[in-house]
Design a protein around this nucleic acid. Structure first.
Length: 279
DNA sequence: CAAGTTACCTGACGGC
DNA sequence: TGCCGTCAGGTAACTT
């Protein structure tokens, strides 16, 4: 489900509901996510603490608590976070539930359990969080993420440009949907070696990535199967997909038939004309 | 070291 | 109806 725009939408949607709230209790399903969940640790560290901030970094959510502890959450492929009335009916695959001090509950739901939760106790939180993101690439909207940075980093990389921009160590937050969409909108073939793009092309691609992500955030993200924000509403950026999932359909720009191929094991869509496919 | 492959998990869908 | 294979928004640990 969640790439940068979806995580950003969840983050913004939750902020008003949880910032300043105190954790009263933590309950877990007992099932492991990508790794086992330390429910006792979560409970011991967080109960009685209030939430100071909720921010997004890459596709992660970062919660910081008054006592200094921090929590990093990843939503995997199918994860979501929502606010519910205390004691209301839970859903299948609710795995972690934080009871808040205003008769509500923050719940983490994740069907496929590819999500993750990392707890950083107060003493080691700032160091731990820093180390956690040490290898994470820059945010696409940051100044660090410049045309020059991408161009230089792509030098000598034979890897397809699509994989290159989906690598979180290179640039944060771009997953399969927005990689496909951005490359189409920039008129760049996804299979091209990253090193083959000119500086001018990197400039165009970066501009388009930013524009696409921003637009998607404004649309409330993309809802493919069941993505909903904190209020339970789906996003509608999927209405704006130009290329993702459109194999066999006509290109919106030139009427050529959109092709589907596999790059790096992931479904990839492109227009052979607009994206100048070179075999 | 870079790049490709596999594993983690559930559910939806199409073919038979 | 149901069984089976395939595929799905991500990431990291493997292998080559």
């Amino acid at each position: 489900m969640p790439e940068l725009p979806e995580v950003e939408v969840i983050c913004r949607g939750l902020q008003n509901h949880i910032i300043g709230r105190r954790i009263e209790a933590v309950h877990c399903s007992g099932k492991h996510l990508r790794s086992p969940v330390d429910c006792t640790g979560l409970s011991d560290e967080l109960c009685g603490q209030s939430i100071n901030s909720l921010t997004r970094r890459a596709k992660y959510l970062l919660l910081q608590f008054t006592g200094g502890a921090a929590l990093i959450l990843h939503l995997g492929m199918t994860g979501n976070m929502g606010i519910f009335k205390k004691g209301s009916k839970t859903k299948k695959h609710d795995h972690i539930c934080w009871t808040l001090d205003n008769n509500t509950e923050l719940r983490f739901n994740d069907t496929r359990r590819f999500g993750a939760v990392h707890l950083f106790p107060a003493e080691e939180a700032s160091k731990g969080v820093k180390a956690f993101f040490a290898k994470t690439g820059p945010e696409p909207f940051s100044r660090t993420c410049s045309t020059k940075y991408l161009f230089n980093r792509a030098a000598n990389k034979k890897q397809p440009v699509k994989n290159f921009i989906m690598d979180s160590h290179t640039i944060a937050g771009i997953g399969n949907i927005y990689a496909n969409e951005s490359l189409f909108r920039a008129g760049i073939n996804p299979t091209l070696p990253a090193s083959s793009l000119t500086e001018k092309e990197w400039k165009r691609l970066l501009t388009v990535i930013r524009k696409t992500l921003k637009h998607a955030i404004q649309c409330g993200g993309s809802t493919i199967s069941d993505f909903v924000n904190a209020s339970g509403d789906g996003g509608y950026f999927q209405m704006n997909f130009q290329i993702y999932g459109k194999n066999g359909e006509q290109c919106r720009q030139c009427q050529e038939t959109i092709q589907k191929i596999t790059i790096g094991g992931r479904a990839s869509f492109f227009c052979p004309r607009c994206q100048n496919y070179v075999d």
